[in-house]
């Protein structure tokens, strides 16, 4: 890696580490005073699960094409946390939830989510091994979408929580859910999938909101601290972009002035 880029990467990671540590400590000390902004999708999820339990229908969770090996690994783990918290609520029902993925590497995580959910409630004997299902996605993920719509129909799912990697095939899945009167919340790390989720999902989650399910559904101090860290980094990014845009308008005068100040400081 190029030296400047390498040091910039290290600096960003260290800054994130520092902000996360401070934010977590603040969240621990002032747990009740931190109010998270309202995200309707996270408020709706427990409600949809409650409705599914009342109507004796299973809940469907899907990772799509997310995989723990690669750049999507943090999102996979964040969604695993969200699914675990939601799956724990479904264990009171008679139906085992359905968890689907098109990436074979996510299968062990899927099993772990449901096993942990049932173990937390002391009902591990109710866990069914067929509840986690892998459907290969083929060249364009359409085979996965077709399999998913069939599974949703066969299991008569009450709610579908689809957080992960979905492309335009998400339209078929959400359309099938609508036609059968099933609730659906969807979000994707792919832009075309996200656009479709915006138009067709019952409630909306966009971009980084997918990562904070733990804080909204669990509420541990570390999870709340992550949301505070994310918001702080977002503000820093906005300020940096604003500074660079202003510098562009002033034809590089701001950056030149900053470099002069640093040189004076360094020389002094």
């Amino acid at each position: 890696m190029e030296t400047t880029l390498a040091y910039l990467t290290i600096a960003i990671v260290l800054a994130a580490l520092l902000i996360n540590t401070i934010a977590t400590q603040i969240a621990r000390a002032r747990r009740d005073s931190i109010v998270l902004r309202n995200i309707r999708a996270y408020a709706a999820m427990p409600q949809y699960i409650g409705e599914s339990l009342e109507t004796d229908r299973p809940v469907h969770f899907s990772f799509g094409s997310l995989t723990p090996g690669g750049v999507a690994a943090p999102l996979t783990l964040a969604n695993a946390e969200t699914f675990t918290l939601l799956a724990t609520r479904t264990t009171y029902g008679t139906n085992t939830p359905l968890l689907t993925t098109s990436e074979v590497a996510t299968l062990p995580i899927g099993y772990d989510i449901l096993r942990r959910a049932y173990r937390t409630q002391g009902r591990l004997n109710q866990f069914q091994i067929g509840a986690v299902q892998w459907y290969p996605d083929g060249a364009r993920s359409l085979a996965f979408a077709a399999a998913l719509t069939a599974a949703m129909a066969d299991r008569r799912t009450g709610a579908n929580i689809l957080l992960g990697g979905f492309g335009s095939e998400l339209a078929l899945i959400l359309d099938a859910a609508t036609r059968r009167g099933q609730r659906a919340i969807a979000a994707s790390d792919q832009l075309d999938g996200q656009a479709i989720a915006y138009a067709m999902s019952d409630e909306l989650l966009v971009g980084e909101e997918m990562f904070v399910g733990g804080a909204y559904l669990g509420g541990r101090a570390a999870q709340t601290g992550a949301v505070v860290s994310l918001d702080t980094l977002r503000v820093l990014l906005i300020l940096t972009l604003g500074f660079l845009a202003l510098d562009q308008l002033l034809q590089g005068a701001l950056l030149a002035q900053l470099a002069r100040m640093l040189n004076v400081g360094g020389g002094g």
């Binding site: 971009g207 904070v212 990014l237």
Partner: peptide, 22 residues
């Protein structure tokens, strides 16, 4: 995409310091 990148960094850091329980 920038939002997702920022959240990826924060989640990565949480995993690095052992805050993520998954």
């Amino acid at each position: 995409l920038l939002g997702i990148a920022l959240a990826t960094i924060v989640t990565g850091v949480r995993i690095l310091v052992g805050q993520d329980r998954s």
